[in-house]
Structures are given as structure tokens and as C-alpha cells.
Simulated scan of single mutants.
Amino acid sequence: IIYSSIVYPKEILKLNLPSIIATYTVNQIPPWPNIIVNNKKVSKMAADFFLNKGFKHFGYCGFDYFPWSQERSAYFNTEIRKAGHAAHIYKKPKSKIYNMWKYEQDSVKNWLKSLPKPVAVLASNDLRGQFILELCKTSGLNVPDEIAVLGIDNDKVVCSISSPPLTSININYQKAGFEAAQLLEKLMNGQKSQKQQIIIEPTTIITRRSTDTLAIDDKDIATALSFIRENANIPLQVDEVAQEVLISKRTLQRKFKKSIGHSIGYEIKKTRMEKIANILIETDRPVYRIANELGYNDCTNMVRSFRQFMELTPQAYRRKHK
């Protein structure tokens, strides 16, 4: 397996050995099988995540010289435009001076300050997301209230040491690694491969403090959503949400449906199922323990609800996505 991080590996490929390419600096290297990320799905997941939070201003900050970053930028912009908005794409100035760390920092700082607020920014990967968070801190920009930041890769070390902790799209690199190993074994045994791509799929978004905000104009809806998310680990009832907002259940149901597009009950269930999914991916806790922590009287009830919503049992979801 060849991982091309800096240069095109021409000399190695001339040896004509069984190879699978995981390239960083070019799109693909035919005719060998290539490992690639489904950037279209990644970008759609990011756009949907921000749109569901009510954002109307969006940004993308990546690297002009990497094809995978350019792809994510283009797909993200397309999805945002479909929703009737536009994404502000960071473009590094062409002068070579901006290759220097100090000047690159200044350029991104100025871009962040220029964005309309509140704004949702997708970073091309977690390292770029951490970089953006650091610049927001030194620029006096509040995260997540002024700028919500979403990374890609779910690198647990990078996300956890970021300040605030970085929300990120989890990519199933482990599954792709197993597929690549199986394919390489076949190639080494002299079998020809019909598979020219190993697609790495995103699985879910692991939410952390960097996106813990809502850009909802209606204060009642914003209060309801915040209350639901803050209480995702208890079996919340619609009546309790209405009591927190201090309006009638009927009025809140009507406003919620108009603003969010579905019922309060569905939002409660969705939030609970996403909470379970995050725990399954982020930890090795037994399913029965998760059910107990989230207030289920019977583990079977949680498993049934999760399966209905995710179309997989908790165990199968963990095996597929972790």
C-alpha cells in the first residue's frame, strides 16, 4: 500500500508490484485501485447539520492546493446553494508570503472577522478546524455563538485538545483499511481486481462544544431545542418542553412544525437516538449500561427504538460505524 503525502510515487509504481493507492495530493492514480473519501456525502452531511441548526450564513476554510479539500468546498457550496444560501469560501492570497505561518494566520483571521454573524464554518479537516478555533480565540470571536466550527475526520486527540472541543464528522477509515488489506491480499495472490475504488464513508457527526448553539430567530423554538438537547439523557415528554417555553403545547407544536419541519416528539426521539449513536461510536460501554444511563427502564425498549430509527440494532450500528 502506498501513501502519497508529498510527491507522485512514480519510481515505486514502476516496480509494478501489487499496490493500492491512498493519495493525499492528487485525485487518483490509475490504473491502480485507489482509496478515496466520499466527499459528496461528507459535505451534504455538514450542510444538513448546519441548516438544521437554523444558520443562514456559511463558510468553508480549507486548502486550495489539495483536490480533496477543493471537492469538499465545491460540494458544500452546492448543498448550501440548494437551500437558498451561499457559502463564503476562504481563498489564500496568491503571494508566496502567505505560505509563511504568520501571514497565513493573519489572512484567515481577517476572513473570519469579515464573515456575517452568526456563521457556520466547515473546516476541511480537524487540524484546520483546530487552527480556526485558535484564531477565533486570539481574535476575540466567540465560539460557538458567533462562529460555529465543524471539522472532518473525528480525530479524537485533535478534537479533544481543541478549545472548545471540536465537533467533527466521523469517517470510517478502519472499515476502508480492512477492505484495502483484503484487496491487497488478492492482488498479491495474482488475482485481478475489478474494484478500482475503495470508498471511505462518513458515518455520523460527533457533537462537541464548537457547534453547541442554535441560529433560530424564534426564541420559543430556540428555547425548546436547547431544552431537548440539554435533556437528551432522560425520557422527556412534549408537555415538559411546553412548560419550559411557557406557552401552550398546541401553540408550540404548531410553531415547531412550521419552523423545523417535524413534530416536537420526533425531535425528542431523534436527539435521543443521536445521543445513543454517539456513545456507541465514542465508547465501548455495553448496551445495557447505555440504556440505564439514558433512563430506559428496559434495555429491550431502547434497542427496539434505536432499531426503528436507525434501521440497525445498537450492536450492528457500533460494528458498522466504529
Rank of each mutant, 00 (worst) to 15 (best):
F76L: 07
I228N: 03
T271P: 15
Q194K: 15
E201A: 14
W111R: 03
V157C: 10
M100A: 00
K40R: 15
K109P: 05
L246K: 14
I268F: 06
W111A: 02
P286C: 13
N292F: 14
D64N: 14
F58D: 05
K257M: 12
P202K: 00
I260H: 02
F50D: 03
I161E: 14
S19N: 11
N142G: 06
Q315K: 15
K258R: 03
E240G: 01
L17A: 02
P116E: 03
L183D: 09
T23P: 13
Q174V: 15
S124N: 06
D153Y: 11
P164G: 01
R319C: 12
I12M: 10
R307K: 15
K117M: 04
V238I: 13
G59R: 00
W101P: 00
E179N: 13
M188E: 03
K10E: 14
I21G: 03
L122W: 08
N301P: 01
E185N: 15
K192Q: 14
Q70I: 11
M273S: 08
Y288L: 07
Y296V: 02
S5V: 14
I161P: 12
S69Y: 11
G140R: 13
T313I: 05
L122H: 07
I264T: 05
I268A: 08
K92V: 04
G265M: 00
N189F: 03
Q70S: 05
D298T: 10
I206W: 04
I147V: 14
E293D: 13
L112R: 03
N231A: 01
Y103Q: 00
A176F: 11
M302A: 07
I200Y: 03
Q130W: 00
N292T: 12
K255T: 08
T211E: 02
E79H: 15
K109E: 09
D106T: 15
R81W: 06
E230A: 02
E311S: 10
T25A: 08
